[in-house]
Design a protein around this nucleic acid. Sequence first.
RNA 1: GCUCCCGUAGUUCAAUGGAUAGAACAGAGCUCUUCUAAGGCUUUGAUGUAGGUUCGAUUCCUACCGGGAGCACCA
Length: 567
Amino acid sequence: MNIIETLQNAVKKALKELKIEAGEVIIEHPADLTNGDYSTNVALVYAKELKIKPLEFAQEIKNILDVQKIKYIDKLEIAGTGFINFYLSQEFFDENIEEILKQKENFGSSDLGKNKKVIVEYSSPNIAKPFTIGHLRSTIIGDSVANILQFLGYKIIRDNHLGDWGTQFGKQIVAIKRWSSIEDVKNSRNLPAQAGQMKTLVDLYVKFHQETEKNPELEDEAREWFLKLEKGDKEAKEIYDITVEASMKYFNMIYERLDIKPFDTLHGEAFYEPMLKGVLEDIEKAGIARKSEGAKLIFFENEKYPPLMIQKKDGATLYATRDLATDKYRNKEYGKDTLVINETGVEQSLYFKQIFEIEEMLGYFAKKNRVHIGHGFIRSKDGKMSTRKGNVVWLEEVLDEGVARAKVINEDIAEMVGIGAIKFNDLKREAKQNIIFDWDEIVNLKGDSGPYLQYSCVRARSIVAKAEVVRVKLLQSCRSLTLTTVLERLLYRFPEVVYRAGKEYAPHYIAQYLLEISSAFNNFYAQNKIIDKDDPASAYRVVLTHAFSIVIANGLNLLGIKIPEKM
RNA sequence: GCUCCCGUAGUUCAAUGGAUAGAACAGAGCUCUUCUAAGGCUUUGAUGUAGGUUCGAUUCCUACCGGGAGCACCA
């Protein structure tokens, strides 16, 4: 039984003695450590019913709890307007630290998600289009969410839903045929390494849109070529294959640099193409679609949402149809109880609400098993980056810039530090927040940053290593030798933080916690000489440092941030 | 026009309906003969406006004001 349940039960028992049948008893951490480790507000909640003052009622409850002697609780206090605060005992902290040292990289993990499957769909770049800064956010956040859920015991399927089908390939083919050639694309080596071909393709795509403004019939030409591609035309297929190959090379380079975990499935839209007919039949059978102005749309009860188009008037399908096919497939392949998470930009929020609603109507997935994590925009001064306007920001250049800035600190690990800084900048705040892109803030090596955390972790590890060298004698127990530190009072919370981050699909809780505990560690470090052979308490300080290094390393791991050996 | 999200310190962000609203950067002042000073300590400074619900509201509700996004053949 965990400590929170213990406290809840103790409080409930006390209330029962006072003849109160309590519903939910809330046990939470006080905002300020000076108010103890846990607290409850039951006195405030129930005092009104009894028509007595909260403080008096709190006193009554406290009297009963004092007699009970709750395990791991040292001290009870009444504070504020009637809160009852619990202080954990040194025995609790000692056992917790033993636990951390024993479990090491598993500390904070659980089997909460045992036998449950989760598909996390993220990154999902489009073939022959740039890997944008938006895809970067999706990749970083999606990877971290998957890490966290995996740590909580879920079986994770990491899915990259590539945009590898659709009318844009008609455009691409037209552009290559008109202004370039297959050979040209193959041979384009004018730009660095793998990026060369990719940049040529994107330039052509941008050019297509510029030319269309003067010459609208290009659109018709593109539609024709896409039709040919769908029918298996040889030339169309050849050009298509080259664009896919060039794009994948580029994407894989980015993934390698970002050091994200490999994807389990890479089913693009083309993969689901053959299943579209089945989806349209399901919709027909369910009778939820209506024709309007020639196109087929699904309308929602009471106009809860605007209608969603699932088939164009020319019979062609849309992204929505392909997404529905995707989840029909997932239902079959992984089972209806699987949790399906999509990480995309917030601009798709309404769209996903509509999709979830429809999937419930069709019986693919219940709404409770569908999650959309929407990330906000990254803006520069010139506004949102757009493929069509040609205002493309190349991701590899973004990564290079971060790494270049990290070089000032340490040439050898600049890649690790620069990438870590970029990742942490995305993960330290709520996903839905917009980010104003500012290099001075992102790779600022001070403050709330990735490098600060990397530094704190490396520093702690280096102290532990040194302690081993000078052979500080590690005592079995040093209870009488130490006072409880802030560090101890934060360390045990790590599993709670991971749990919350997983439950809310929000890595920023972990990021914020790591900042807080690192600050506590650095404070501890500044105030104590940790290694001192002549001081018996030194052993405990080393152990504490060791425990900290484990917790921060586990946290950084979940965020997908690498830890250098030296810094 | 309708819908959703966001308005917290000079700036960038936190805060599970709770206690004195936390950090970081920037500003002011300290702090390295000390295991990593990329650190630590002190200090200045904030909930858009007006109501409502509540013992208690940054959090929930209503209206308004600012900013962003979405809403029929894109993905």
